[in-house]
Simulated assay, not measured.
Amino acid sequence: MLPGRRAVSVRTGNCPEFTRVADYVLLRDDADLASPPSVWTLEEIRALFSGVKDGEFDRLLG
């Protein structure tokens, strides 16, 4: 997989890694690089990020 992008605030090695390839975003756990990434469309990633920014997933954190 191509080099990905991680949150700069995470230094533990337990972080999702995002890589854009054409019109898709590959998502993998950087703690398990041998596993295949999940493949998301740009529309799916935009919807996810929008929901995160709007606080729709805050309850998952407790």
Score class of each variant (00 low, 15 high):
residue 12 T to N: 13
residue 60 L to A: 10
residue 32 D to H: 11
residue 43 E to K: 08
residue 29 D to E: 07
residue 58 D to M: 08
residue 44 E to S: 09
residue 54 D to F: 09
residue 44 E to I: 01
residue 46 R to W: 06
residue 53 K to Y: 09
residue 33 L to V: 14
residue 46 R to E: 12
residue 15 C to R: 00
residue 10 V to Y: 06
residue 22 A to F: 08
residue 32 D to R: 11
residue 19 T to Q: 03
residue 22 A to R: 09
residue 7 A to N: 08
residue 59 R to L: 10
residue 8 V to A: 09
residue 25 V to T: 02
residue 20 R to I: 05
residue 28 R to M: 00
residue 54 D to M: 14
residue 43 E to V: 08
residue 22 A to S: 12
residue 6 R to D: 10
residue 43 E to A: 15
residue 26 L to A: 05
residue 23 D to V: 05
residue 52 V to N: 06
residue 54 D to A: 15
residue 16 P to Q: 04
residue 37 P to Y: 02
residue 21 V to R: 11
residue 58 D to V: 12
residue 3 P to T: 13
residue 58 D to K: 13
residue 45 I to L: 15
residue 52 V to I: 15
residue 18 F to G: 01
residue 6 R to Q: 11
residue 11 R to E: 10
residue 25 V to N: 00
residue 53 K to A: 15
residue 10 V to C: 14
residue 5 R to T: 09
residue 45 I to H: 03
residue 19 T to N: 02
residue 62 G to K: 10
residue 7 A to Y: 02
residue 17 E to N: 01
residue 43 E to G: 09
residue 17 E to Y: 01
residue 51 G to N: 07
residue 43 E to W: 04
residue 24 Y to Q: 15
residue 39 V to T: 13
residue 24 Y to V: 15
residue 9 S to W: 07
residue 43 E to S: 12
residue 7 A to L: 05
residue 4 G to I: 07
residue 42 L to R: 07
residue 48 L to G: 00
residue 39 V to P: 00
residue 6 R to C: 13
residue 36 P to K: 07
residue 44 E to F: 02
residue 35 S to H: 14
residue 37 P to C: 06
residue 20 R to K: 14
residue 56 E to W: 11
residue 13 G to F: 06
residue 57 F to L: 13
residue 5 R to E: 04
residue 58 D to T: 13
residue 54 D to K: 15
residue 20 R to V: 06
residue 15 C to I: 03
residue 12 T to M: 09
residue 55 G to Y: 03
residue 60 L to N: 09
